[in-house]
Design a protein around this nucleic acid. Structure first.
Length: 795
RNA sequence: GCCGGUGUGGCGGAACGGUAGACGCAGCGGAUUCAAAAUCCGCCGAUGGCAACAUCGUGAGAGUUCGAUUCUCUCCACCGGCACCA
């Protein structure tokens, strides 16, 4: 009896599958189609165990669907534009294109030995001109449909390097290279009008039955529909042509508690004041310091400047409210102006205390007859919309009502009295797609002095990136290129200038799933292919994409339908979504002479000490694998040591797929031992003499077998991979100990190979062949549990 | 700061309103072996007890329920996202 040698088996079966064309997807009327997609990787250069886990899960689904008679599409590509390629070029002088394509080649070579059921004939990278040219065509179609426009937006500006920084490049409010204080600066940028679909993107979440509830909730909160009151405060004295300030509030029930007005430093009135008042200008400059992230704005120190202007309260006519410029008021949301109600909003209360503004309560808690005013240093009283409260200063009498009722009453009262109107607003902002970088899809626009911003003619697409660029100075090389900007105006033919901004890489990943249905098509999609293959039946990826990538893709699917590139059924492109956890590993650390941590790779550590020197290491609990902490295992090394089946089996077996899994050498050893055991059991059965005179108990084995078919099938269909594998462990033990006849054990081992095949396809093919199974196990029909064997005969 | 999630033996986890700890790892004991590797069998939450068994036990605290790991609330810790990382 030979031993289980993964390396030989795996190479053999991978070649056999490829030769048989088992995974090449073609349209077919014979079988139901099934489209499985894992979020495509960024070509960083090496695959990591997280990729292995992600693609293994997709592969299990794909192979199970093949076995249940589906026509499966399971493609792979590369999300290939982005900053790391430019950073590499800056650091080591190469070219982003060469860096990227070389990484793709390396990663493809690492992925193929995993034995994934991928249709490699559909592979593409988003930096292929054939892909981004179609993306430019899509952009132009969306522009025609009014889904693209230009407006000003703020970016992180590094005043020393004179360049725009990504949020990632702003460390503690300073530029990552220059160390200079970052400023917020306005630029004219292109936007997708995703807000046009706010309501629909929100409402349609209800129909996504096979999406995780948490993802739908996060998206709903992100879109953030709110009902509120928009109205104007009149300025007591006109200033710079302003006689009123428009305000939006979601809590009009607290209007009688208003004690000040806050406007954004980017509000037109603030800008007008800034122009002729150096003090205001100094304040606004201070307020514009720091990065643009919501986190930086929310957690930064609240700063205010009293403009000296006042407004009249629309109802409480005895009071005028001061107008402050406040750095926490966002120009992007609402009207860029708010009224502050310190008694019932913590942020407003902090601000009021800092600047000595009045605190005016409008209601008291029902169950508390003490003072409704916050005590010195106490928190603001912020009732939930569902809490019953009594308003002592309200619009609907002083009876007990919930906040929600009071808000409705306040809007109605204000509308009746001609003060503003109830409006529905969304938190969702339009999607700014302009990036001042080289390694992205060029925005296909030409700027003409006479005609303005004109889209390039489609016959001139793709607008290709030039190869001759340098990265020796900060900023966008396209801006500095001697000739690339020169273009003829597509409208009037006069000399004009190309747009040098490129697209956000999120654009690239917002429609790749549609492109996979016809990757060679001369239009973004092919109507027949899109109609046949869409939607993605199962999408799998990290929870970190729960909001942006998935929301943008849902928007793009709608935009592609509006521009005739996708059928209506595809406006929700992902029927089912699964978000998987990370692969983690312990961190091994020693200290250098200065007490600074030094990290060590897992393979250099044995029994809690360095292999080389015997020095003991400090073990830090498991964390996401990262190169800087050196807590990484290289899939290449794992595959060389154990083979793909062991790696696949282990990443699925040890944790539920939605949770993090810790990679441990012991766990991988155990997985490998188990596969060797299955091999051994199958070999013994294959060599056993039929009809040997042993006591036979076929029924118990058959009963266990059908129970296992049932449990494993249900497990695979519900992402219960770890539980399904536990059942397979248990059944393997039953089979090993079984006293059933050879025929029954052979049958059971064949079915075991089938049940394991989605996880360990190579081993299963080998066992299948050994026991005389017909054809490929990969192509064999999935076993079905017979109900009569599932009935428990004892309780 | 805001939004979302997670927390069960020494470890990964199972059960998800009804015997907590399936399955795996580690550990312990045994078989096989000249010996070892490999393999096979058994034990394995804590405390007390020779044992039968008893008590406690699912991050902390409260609540709903005949019954809570599971549902609700508050808190703590950690993780993901916060619109230019991908």
């Amino acid at each position: 009896m030979s031993r289980y040698t993964a390396a030989e088996i795996e190479a053999k079966w991978q070649a056999a599958w490829t030769e048989a064309g088992l995974f090449t997807a073609r349209r077919s009327a014979d079988k139901p189609k099934y489209y499985v997609l894992e979020m495509f990787p960024y070509p960083s250069g090496r695959i990591h165990m997280g990729h292995v886990r992600n693609y293994t899960m997709g592969d299990v689904i794909a192979r199970h669907r093949i076995a249940t008679g589906h026509n499966v599409l399971h493609p792979m590509g590369w999300d290939a534009f982005g900053m790391p390629a430019e950073n590499a070029a800056m650091a080591s002088g190469g070219h982003p294109k060469e860096w990227t394509y070389s990484n793709i080649a390396d990663m493809r070579a690492q992925m193929k030995p995993l034995g994934l059921s991928i249709d490699w004939s559909r592979e593409f990278a988003t930096c292929d001109p054939e892909y981004y040219g179609q993306q430019q065509a899509l952009f132009i179609d969306m522009l025609d449909k009014g889904l693209v426009y230009r407006k000003n937006a703020v970016v992180n500006w590094d005043p020393v390097d004179m360049t725009v920084l990504a949020n990632e490049q702003v460390i503690d409010g300073k530029g990552w290279r220059s160390g200079a204080d970052v400023e917020r600066r306005e630029l004219t940028q292109w936007f997708f009008k995703i807000s046009e679909y706010s309501d629909e993107l929100l409402t349609a979440l209800d129909g996504l039955d096979d999406w995780p509830a948490k993802v739908k909730l996060m998206q709903a909160n992100w879109i953030g529909r709110s009902r509120g009151l928009q109205f104007a405060f009149s300025l007591t004295e006109q200033s710079h042509g302003f006689d009123r300030l428009e305000v939006y509030t979601t809590r009009p029930d607290t209007l009688l508690g208003a004690s000040f007005l806050g406007i954004s430093p980017d509000h037109p009135l603030a800008k007008a004041l800034e122009a002729d008042n150096p003090e205001v200008a100094a304040f606004c400059a201070e307020a514009r310091r720091g990065g643009t992230t919501e986190e930086a704005l929310e957690t930064g120190e609240k700063l205010g400047f009293d403009t000296g202007l006042t407004v009249r309260h629309p109802f409480d006519t005895g009071r005028d409210l001061p107008v402050w410029i406040a750095n926490f008021v966002l120009m992007d949301y609402g009207t860029g102006a708010i009224f502050g109600c310190p008694a019932h909003d913590q942020r407003d209360l902090d601000f009021a205390r800092k600047y000595g503004l009045p605190v005016i309560s409008t209601f008291a808690p029902v169950k508390d007859d003490g003072s409704p005013l916050p005590e010195d240093g106490g928190a603001a009283f912020v009732p939930q919309k569902t809490d019953p409260v009594i308003y002592i200063r309200g619009f609907a009498g002083d009876t007990e009502q919930t906040g929600a009722q009071a808000i409705d009453a306040a809007i109605a009262f204000c509308e009746q009295n001609g003060v503003g109107q109830g409006v529905t607003r969304f938190r969702l902002r339009d999607w700014g797609l302009s990036r001042q970088r080289y390694w992205g899809c060029p925005i296909p626009i030409v700027h003409c002095d006479d005609c303005g911003a004109v889209p390039e003619r489609k016959e001139n697409l793709p607008v290709r990136l030039p190869d001759d660029v340098s990265f020796d100075v900060p900023g966008n090389p396209l801006d500095r290129h001697p000739t690339w900007r020169d273009a003829a105006c597509p409208s009037c033919g006069k000399p004009a200038r190309r747009e040098t901004d490129t697209m956000d890489t999120f654009v690239d990943s917002s429609w790749y799933f549609a492109r996979f249905t016809s990757p060679g098509s001369a239009t973004p999609t092919d109507a027949e292919d899109a109609a046949y293959w869409m939607n993605v039946d199962q999408y799998i990826g990290g929870i970190e994409h729960a909001i942006l990538h998935l929301l943008y893709s849902r928007f793009f699917a709608r935009a592609m339908h509006a521009t005739g590139h996708l059928p209506e059924k595809a406006i929700e492109p992902f029927n089912a979504l699964f978000t998987q956890g990370m692969v983690t590993h312990e961190i091994y650390q020693t200290r250098d002479a200065n007490g600074r941590p030094v990290y060590h790779l897992p393979e250099s550590v044995e029994n809690g000490a360095l292999k080389a020197t015997g020095e003991p290491v400090e073990i830090i609990p498991s964390a996401k694998m990262s190169k800087s902490k050196k807590n990484v295992v290289d899939p290449d090394a794992i595959l060389a040591q154990y083979g793909a089946d062991t790696a696949r089996w282990f990443v699925l077996s040890d944790s539920p797929p939605e949770r993090d899994v810790e990679w441990t050498a012991a766990g991988a050893d155990a997985a490998h031992k188990h596969l060797a055991r299955v091999w051994r059991i199958a070999s013994e059965i294959a060599e056993a003499e039929a009809g040997a005179a042993v006591p036979q108990d076929d029924e118990a084995l058959t009963r266990a077998l059908h129970r296992t078919i049932q449990d494993v099938t249900l497990g695979l269909e519900s992402f219960g991979f770890n539980a399904a594998i536990a059942k397979l462990y248990a059944f393997t033990s039953v089979l090993a100990k079984s006293t059933a006849g050879v025929a029954a054990r052979r049958e059971a081992a064949l079915v075991l190979a089938q049940l394991m095949a989605p996880m360990t396809p190579h081993l299963s093919e080998e066992v299948w062949g050994l026991l005389g199974g017909d054809g490929f196990v990969t192509a064999a029909a999935w076993p079905v549990a017979e109900p009569r064997w599932l009935v428990e005969d004892s309780v």
